[in-house]
Structures are given as structure tokens and as C-alpha cells.
Design a binder for these strands. Structure first.
Length: 97
DNA sequence: ACTGGGGCCAGAG
DNA sequence: ACTCTGGCCCCAG
């Protein structure tokens, strides 16, 4: 990853408010040159000690992508007041921006 | 230089 | 609502 893109991605993620979520694709569009896959990759390789709300980033279907940490991620979101429907999807009104 | 694979997405059936 | 396809760009081997 180019450091410049990483910074932009981190900056956007850091701005996601409590109790809201956004998607990989939306973050990609807010940056210049990043793609959704890069955002996903950036979230996977987050450095230790970061303060980023990575759990608020989900996929375009408004579901938490299943990759192993999914259970923990859903737990974090629930603790912020986000509700999941029967299919595991997040309501649209939680979307940021 | 080449290949396969990523926490993806929009569009078309 | 679900599956398939092509495109995306950056790594690691």
C-alpha cells in the first residue's frame, strides 16, 4: 500500500461516529485512488495500538463480512447500539455519511 | 515480467 | 433476494 492512500483511509475511518457504520466502497470513494479491496486490506493489517473504529466498516450488502473476526465485530457494533435484523443486516439509517 | 489472491462492488440475469 | 462476471490495484512468491 502506498502510505498516502493508507493515511487517507485511516483519516476517513477515524471520522465514523459512534453508532454509525459505513462500507468499504464508500470509504474508497472518499479517498483519491483507493479501491474497496484496498480498504479491506488496510483494515486487516491495522498496526497495534491504533485507535480506529475498524468494526464500523462493513460491506455494501450492509453485512459484516465473514472472515473469522466477524463475531467479535458484531458484538462491538451491538455494544454501540447497532441492531441486526434476522439475516444479520444493519439498518440503512445507521449508514454514515 | 507473470500469477493468484484479497474483510469489494455494480450491473445483469 | 441470490448468483455470476468483470474490473479494481497492490502484494507476495
Amino acid at each position: 500500500m502506498r502510505a498516502e492512500l493508507l493515511e487517507q483511509i485511516y483519516t476517513v475511518v477515524a471520522q465514523i461516529p459512534d453508532g454509525r457504520i459505513t462500507t468499504y466502497g464508500r470509504i474508497a470513494k472518499m479517498t483519491e485512488g483507493a479501491t474497496a479491496r484496498m480498504v479491506g486490506s488496510a483494515m486487516r493489517h491495522l498496526p497495534d495500538g491504533h485507535e480506529l473504529p475498524w468494526h464500523r466498516v462493513i460491506n455494501a450488502s450492509l453485512k459484516v463480512t465473514d472472515h473469522g473476526g466477524a463475531v467479535n465485530q458484531r458484538a462491538k457494533l451491538r455494544s454501540e447500539g447497532i441492531l441486526f435484523d434476522a439475516v444479520g443486516r444493519v439498518p440503512r439509517e445507521c449508514l454514515w455519511p
